[in-house]
């Protein structure tokens, strides 16, 4: 049963002083699925992802990633995951090839293996002739695509994407998602945070966070049906507004 649950989160709580960033979250992620974390800025998406990737420690709760406990086996987890953050794509003053070589090396791939995988990445993206170009000279959309390929260069069980497509246009986002589907087909579980509602539509299942609480978790189709909305944007607005209204109501007397 745990076999097809690659991430298990029970009662995850994260506090910064009095501020509750993650308020008793409960969810599972199935092996091979594309799991979306949806919420406005400050809703607690990045905090949750930091805990799952070992960058931050939870205040309390039981969390298992790739079959290992985050408290005890942080190092083992790190070998089994990939990560791409919103701020960073790649080292700008290194070439594409050097970036791939660096991260391949950090994840312990042999030189031969790195060569093979570099060639594969370059072919897949159709940029064989750009291997020795500095990353800094590329447009943002390209950087993000390469960064994603680099994040999964070591074939991790799960890849965590923290708002991977922020700042690019919908067409480039769509191309980026083609890469994500491709990786998912190879059996890599995708855990992605976003605040773009069109991206939410591409996920298998979506969790919606508002002010640190998870207020919905289902497939986009089910959500749209349940709330009788045309698209995820309307679902989100409805949920977020409802939550806010509900919270404020007692004080408004």
């Amino acid at each position: 049963m745990t076999n097809d649950k690659i991430i298990i989160v029970k009662d995850m709580l994260k506090k910064f002083g009095d501020f509750v960033a993650n308020d008793h979250l409960n969810f599972d992620v199935h092996r091979g699925e594309i799991f979306g974390f949806l919420g406005a800025n400050g809703a607690g998406k990045t905090t949750a992802m930091k805990i799952l990737t070992g960058l931050s420690k939870p205040s309390s709760g039981e969390i298992t990633v790739a079959g290992y406990d985050v408290y005890k086996s942080g190092d083992t987890i790190k070998r089994n995951i990939g990560y791409m953050s919103q701020k960073f794509s790649l080292y700008e003053d290194l070439t594409i090839a050097e970036n791939i070589r660096l991260f391949g090396g950090i994840y312990g791939l042999s030189r031969k293996e790195i060569k093979k995988r570099s060639a594969k990445i370059l072919t897949q993206l159709g940029i064989e002739d750009m291997a020795n170009k500095l990353v800094g000279s590329l447009p943002l959309g390209w950087k993000q695509k390469i960064a994603f390929s680099v994040a999964i260069v070591h074939d991790p069980a799960i890849v965590f994407l923290d708002e991977p497509t922020s700042g690019v246009d919908p067409i480039t986002r769509r191309q980026f998602w083609d890469l994500i589907y491709d990786a998912a087909q190879r059996g890599i579980t995708i855990f992605v945070t976003t605040h773009y509602m069109d991206e939410a539509e591409y996920c298998d299942r979506v969790a919606i966070l508002v002010d640190g609480k998870m207020i919905a978790l289902d497939s986009p189709q089910q959500m749209k049906k349940a709330y009788k909305k045309q698209n995820m944007n309307d679902v989100f607005v409805e949920l977020a507004r409802g939550k806010r209204f509900f919270e404020k109501a007692p004080n408004n007397k």
């Binding site: 070992g54 991260f103 950090i106 965590f160």
Partner: peptide, 14 residues
């Protein structure tokens, strides 16, 4: 500043 520190800390490097 560029966020690459996170990437390195998520990696198996100590």
């Amino acid at each position: 500043e560029f966020g690459s520190m996170e990437i390195l800390l998520v990696s198996p490097l100590k």
